[in-house]
Design a protein around this nucleic acid. Structure first.
Lengths: 95, 95
DNA sequence: TTTGTATGTCGGCGTTCGATGACATTCGTG
DNA sequence: CACGAATGTCATCGAACGCCGACATACAAA
C-alpha cells in the first residue's frame, strides 16, 4: 500500500484495525493515546504526531518502507508547483 | 529502507537530501517549512507533523509503502509490554 | 585573517495538539 | 422498547509545535 497523504494513512489504519477486530477504545489504550486521537487520525488528521503514528502502525503489525521513487517526474525542468506548501503558507498569513 | 522510529526517518531524510545536493535552507523552502524544522526532524524529532513529513519525503522523491508484518511476533499470548506507551503516560503524569 | 557557506542553538510568540469528560447518534440484540 | 456497544462531536486546558530572528560554531577558500 502506497502512502501519499494523511488521509490514505488513516484509511489504512482503520482497515487494519477492523481486520484485527479492535474497537477504537482498546486500540487507543494499546498504543497509549486517547480515543479522540484515533478518530482524528483515521479521518486523516494531517498534523498528528509522527511518533504516535509510528506506534499505531507498529501496534497493528504494519511495516513502513521507504524507497526512492522510480520515476522522479520532478525533473529539473519543472518549476515545481507545490500546492501543499502554497496552501499552508496562505493559511498562516490569513491567521 | 525500513522505518521504525523518528530517528531512522530523520537519517533517511538527511541522507537523501545530501545525495540531492540540497542544503537545509533550500530544502526547507522547497517544502514550505522553516530551516529549524528540517534540523529537528533530521535529528529525530518524534512530535513532528505527519503532513509535513509526507511533504518532505515527496520533495526528496521518497516513496512510502505500508505492508503487513510477515512475523507478527505480537501473538495473543503475549501480555504486550508497550514501553513507548508507558513512558509517554509517565511523562504526562509528572508534568 | 577575512569572507562565505552550512549547520546548530537560543528566546519569544501565536497556534494547535492531544487528553479529558460529557453528550449524541447509530447500530444490533434481548 | 430498552440496553449496550461502537463511533463521532463538543468545550476546555496545559503543553508543545513550528516560525522568526539573531547568534554561535565549524570548515574551506581567497
Amino acid at each position: 500500500m502506497l502512502i501519499r497523504s494523511p488521509a490514505e494513512l488513516g484509511a489504512i489504519l482503520r482497515d487494519r484495525r477492523r481486520k484485527l477486530k479492535l474497537d477504537q477504545s482498546t486500540f487507543a489504550k494499546r498504543i497509549g493515546v486517547s480515543r479522540q486521537w484515533v478518530i482524528e487520525v483515521e479521518h486523516g488528521h494531517a498534523r498528528a504526531e509522527l511518533g504516535l503514528i509510528l506506534r499505531a502502525l507498529d501496534a497493528l503489525d504494519i511495516r513502513l518502507d521507504a524507497s526512492i521513487e522510480p520515476a522522479p517526474a520532478r525533473g529539473a525542468t519543472r518549476p515545481a508547483v507545490d500546492i501543499n506548501a502554497i496552501v499552508a503558507k496562505a493559511r498562516k498569513k490569513k491567521a
